[in-house]
Computed example of a mutant assay.
Amino acid sequence: MTDKLVYTKNIYNGSREELINEVKAALSAKRFQHVLRVEKMATELADCWQVDEELASIAALTHDYAKERSDADFLAKISEKKLDPNLNNWGNNVWHGVVGAEMVKDELGIYHEDILNAIRQHTTGGSAMTKLSQILYMADYIEEARDFPGVTEVRALAFKDLGASVGWQTAHTLAYLMGKQVRIYPGTLLTYNTWSVK
């Protein structure tokens, strides 16, 4: 069970409970409950796909750490870290992953690149995704409170064929965004071309 998971690899300088408290302090109650559900799903997927559950737990608990930060905080971090200037043209949906990973590194002291890349990719995906990145991408999408057409199907798929579930999510997300006629982050198109196209 997730609540009995003990951190042993010195990836985070503290216990799971201490990390939970840091994340809880940064988020609204509703967002924090979502984070706990993502952690539960991520560790279940990690068990299924032989990925380290500690890595999955830390990535899941921190994936939305920066979600409720101000635009000014993100723009300052983009400048400070000399990230791609094109990021200035996007918004929270992209920033809280791509830029949020830098906040996780600087503020929580988590430097494990697999975890940071999973956070960076959890909303946009990527053409190259580790199993951990795929797990976080899917856990965020299919945590138990999610309710949308096809959720039961894609939940089952994630435990049967993880890569195919990444493709399913990306195709459906792209269709949703196109239906809303909003701009689409180029990284999402790369994810679609890699994971969704047969």
Rank of each mutant, 00 (worst) to 15 (best):
residue 178 M to A: 08
residue 18 E to Q: 14
residue 190 L to D: 14
residue 16 R to G: 02
residue 109 G to M: 05
residue 183 R to S: 15
residue 113 E to R: 06
residue 47 D to Y: 13
residue 176 Y to S: 09
residue 96 H to Y: 12
residue 149 P to M: 05
residue 37 R to E: 11
residue 109 G to N: 08
residue 113 E to Y: 04
residue 151 V to N: 06
residue 167 G to R: 07
residue 75 L to G: 01
residue 192 Y to K: 08
residue 166 V to S: 02
residue 113 E to W: 02
residue 44 E to R: 12
residue 35 V to K: 07
residue 153 E to R: 11
residue 56 A to Y: 07
residue 32 F to D: 03
residue 60 A to R: 09
residue 176 Y to Q: 10
residue 1 M to H: 13
residue 125 G to S: 09
residue 188 T to G: 07
residue 182 V to M: 12
residue 83 L to H: 00
residue 6 V to R: 12
residue 96 H to F: 12
residue 4 K to G: 02
residue 198 K to F: 07
residue 167 G to S: 05
residue 124 T to P: 00
residue 68 E to R: 12
residue 118 A to C: 08
residue 76 A to H: 15
residue 64 D to A: 09
residue 54 E to L: 11
residue 72 A to R: 15
residue 128 A to G: 00
residue 188 T to I: 14
residue 132 L to M: 10
residue 151 V to I: 15
residue 38 V to M: 05
residue 90 W to S: 02
residue 58 I to P: 08
residue 24 K to Y: 04
residue 50 Q to N: 15
residue 56 A to P: 08
residue 158 A to N: 01
residue 93 N to I: 12
residue 133 S to C: 10
residue 31 R to S: 14
residue 135 I to H: 06
residue 23 V to T: 07
residue 99 V to E: 05
residue 92 N to H: 12
residue 30 K to M: 06
residue 39 E to N: 13
residue 152 T to F: 07
residue 8 T to H: 10
residue 29 A to W: 05
residue 31 R to K: 15
residue 98 V to I: 15
residue 37 R to V: 00
residue 126 G to L: 04
residue 124 T to K: 08
residue 111 Y to A: 03
residue 105 K to V: 01
residue 173 T to L: 14
residue 132 L to H: 10
residue 75 L to A: 00
residue 31 R to Y: 09
residue 58 I to N: 08
residue 17 E to W: 04
residue 73 D to P: 06
residue 91 G to I: 04
residue 48 C to T: 15
residue 91 G to N: 13
residue 173 T to G: 11
residue 5 L to E: 01
residue 12 Y to C: 02
residue 161 D to P: 03
residue 182 V to I: 15
residue 109 G to V: 07
residue 16 R to C: 06
residue 19 L to V: 11
residue 26 A to C: 10
residue 144 E to W: 05
residue 37 R to L: 09
residue 110 I to T: 02
residue 124 T to M: 10
residue 117 N to W: 13
residue 94 V to R: 02
residue 127 S to E: 15
residue 86 N to V: 14
residue 9 K to Y: 06
residue 185 Y to T: 04
residue 101 A to Q: 08
residue 151 V to M: 04
residue 65 Y to H: 13
residue 1 M to T: 14
residue 29 A to K: 14
residue 99 V to F: 06
residue 120 R to G: 00
residue 75 L to E: 09
residue 151 V to G: 05
residue 26 A to H: 13
residue 61 L to D: 07
residue 92 N to F: 05
residue 194 T to P: 00
residue 163 G to F: 11
residue 196 S to N: 01
residue 88 N to Q: 11
residue 10 N to P: 01
residue 109 G to F: 06
residue 171 A to E: 15
residue 65 Y to S: 11
residue 112 H to T: 10
residue 82 K to V: 04
residue 112 H to W: 10
residue 124 T to V: 14
residue 96 H to A: 09
residue 20 I to H: 03
residue 10 N to L: 05
residue 55 L to N: 08
residue 11 I to T: 13
residue 20 I to W: 03
residue 156 A to I: 13
residue 171 A to Y: 11
residue 75 L to D: 01
residue 139 A to C: 03
residue 184 I to C: 09
residue 76 A to G: 13
residue 192 Y to N: 03
residue 193 N to W: 14
residue 115 I to C: 09
residue 25 A to D: 14
